[in-house]
Simulated scan of single mutants.
Amino acid sequence: MSNELYADSAQARELDRRMSGRYDEWGNLIRPAHEFCHQYDPKEREARNKAENERKAARIRVAIGQMEDFFQCKRT
């Protein structure tokens, strides 16, 4: 009998979990979105995003500098 037609109890439980949509691909229960969401002040969110973007830009500049040093390139 082929594996496609046979499902032992572990396989059946995994399939049930996938089909229910309540579990992620690792079998962990998915919490409702309202447990993750927070209502932040728009100004606070904007300030946080701006600070995060500045940190990202700094990391990108460092990475580009390291690549230029590695490949011995000069900026024009």
Rank of each mutant, 00 (worst) to 15 (best):
M67S: 11
R75I: 02
E46S: 09
E25A: 14
C37G: 06
R17G: 05
A33L: 11
R48K: 07
K43I: 07
E54G: 01
D24Y: 01
K50I: 04
M1P: 05
I64Q: 01
P42V: 01
R48G: 02
Q66L: 08
A12P: 00
V62H: 06
Y40R: 09
I60P: 02
R13K: 15
D69E: 15
R55K: 03
Y23Q: 01
S20R: 01
E54L: 08
G27R: 04
Q66F: 06
D16I: 09
N28M: 07
R75F: 08
I30A: 06
A10W: 10
A10M: 11
R45N: 03
T76Q: 14
R45G: 01
H34W: 13
Q72E: 15
Q39D: 13
R59F: 06
I30P: 00
D16A: 13
K50V: 03
I64T: 02
D16S: 12
H38I: 10
Q39N: 14
A10V: 13
D16H: 12
R31L: 08
E25L: 15
F36R: 13
M67N: 11
V62F: 06
A33H: 07
M19N: 12
R75V: 04
N53G: 07
V62T: 08
A10N: 10
D24S: 00
K74V: 06
N3C: 10
Y40N: 08
P42Y: 05
R31H: 05
Q72R: 14
F71I: 04
R45E: 03
I64W: 00
C73Y: 12
I60R: 15
E68I: 07
D41C: 02
E14H: 08
F71R: 03
H38T: 13
E14S: 10
D69R: 12
K74A: 05
A51G: 09
R75G: 02
Q11L: 11
M67I: 11
I30H: 07
A33S: 09
F36L: 14
N28T: 04
R59L: 06
S2N: 14
I30W: 05
E14I: 10
Q72N: 13
E4A: 05
A7E: 04
C73K: 11
F71Q: 05
M1W: 06
W26R: 08
A33D: 09
D16T: 11
V62R: 15
N49S: 07
I60E: 15
E54W: 07
R31M: 08
F36K: 13
L29Q: 14
A58R: 10
P32C: 03
C73W: 15
L5R: 15
A7F: 05
G21H: 04
G65L: 03
L29W: 15
T76A: 13
R75P: 01
R13E: 08
R55I: 00
K50T: 07
H38V: 13
A10L: 14
L29T: 14
A58H: 11
F36Y: 12
W26V: 08
R13P: 00
S2K: 14
A7G: 03
Y23V: 02
N49I: 06
K56L: 12
Q72F: 09
H34K: 12
Y23R: 03
E14Y: 09
R61E: 02
G21E: 00
R31F: 05
C73Q: 10
K43Y: 06
A58N: 08
E52T: 04
E44W: 01
L29Y: 15
R75S: 03
E25G: 07
K74D: 03
S20I: 00
K43R: 13
